[in-house]
Computed example of a mutant assay.
Amino acid sequence: MKKIPRRVVTGIKNGKSAIVEDEIVKNTVEHFPNLIISDIWNTQQIPASLDFENPIPNLGFPQTPKNGTYFRYVSIPPDKDLGVEIKEGEPHPMMHQTPTLDYIIILSGELYLIMEEGETLLKPGDIVIQRGTNHAWSNRSDEPCIQLAILIDAEKD
């Protein structure tokens, strides 16, 4: 399984800022073959508390805390390696919706963002603002796509 470093530098020692954690994340999970997810950090409220971390379950489809956030690392394998059947003319089997405002950054590889109507190809450096709608990810290449996502609890008007 991929090793993902995490550094938490917001600690205070002897009244000065200090690195309080420099290690590999422990909650890396493979929910589907080769789909690697790690929830790097979360907050339980807004404004966020800077005093502590409340570890959360690492789920395939996130359940962002009410008034909270997730910071999520995702490595999406090529569709052919994912272990789900994609049928022409039918919704993507990984179509889902979360009640969140998501900021997503593609770090490496490429990925199609699929909506109920239309799709777009994403490449490294691309940014997606996902506003609580049905969507799926499709990796039609031969390499994994790595994305970082910040999910913020949201309400529909």
Rank of each mutant, 00 (worst) to 15 (best):
T133M: 06
M115S: 15
I150M: 13
L107H: 14
Y112G: 08
G132V: 01
F32T: 04
P62F: 09
G109I: 00
I37T: 05
E85P: 07
G89V: 00
K66W: 11
K3G: 08
R72P: 00
I86R: 09
D22K: 05
V29M: 11
T43C: 09
P55E: 02
G109P: 01
I146E: 15
Y70C: 01
H135D: 04
N67A: 09
P57W: 05
N54V: 15
K2S: 08
I46R: 13
F61Y: 15
H135M: 02
N139C: 07
M95P: 08
I12R: 10
V8I: 14
H96E: 04
I24G: 03
P62E: 09
K80T: 11
E116F: 03
P124L: 07
V29S: 10
A48V: 09
G68F: 02
D142C: 07
V128F: 00
P78H: 05
I12Y: 13
I129A: 10
A18P: 05
A18Y: 13
P62K: 04
Y73T: 00
G132K: 04
G89N: 03
N58L: 01
T98R: 06
K26C: 09
T10A: 11
D126A: 10
N54S: 14
I36P: 04
D81P: 07
D153Q: 00
I146A: 07
G132H: 02
P91E: 14
I24S: 08
T98W: 05
Q45F: 08
I40K: 01
S38Q: 02
G132D: 03
L101S: 10
P33Q: 03
N14Y: 13
T133V: 11
L107I: 12
H135Q: 02
P144M: 05
N58A: 08
V128I: 07
K2G: 00
H92I: 02
V20R: 04
L35I: 03
L59S: 05
E90Q: 15
D39H: 09
S38I: 00
T98S: 09
P124K: 09
L35S: 05
I56Y: 14
I127A: 06
I146H: 11
I56E: 14
P62V: 07
L59I: 01
I56A: 14
K26H: 10
I106Y: 02
Q45T: 12
W41D: 11
F61L: 12
D142T: 13
T133L: 04
T28G: 14
E85V: 14
D22H: 08
A136N: 07
G68M: 00
Q45I: 01
L151Q: 03
M94Y: 11
E23N: 15
N134C: 07
E88D: 15
V25G: 01
Y112Q: 10
L59V: 02
N58H: 04
M94A: 13
V74H: 09
I152F: 10
L101V: 11
E90V: 08
R140D: 04
Y70I: 06
F52Y: 15
I46S: 14
K80Q: 13
N34M: 10
Y70A: 02
V84G: 07
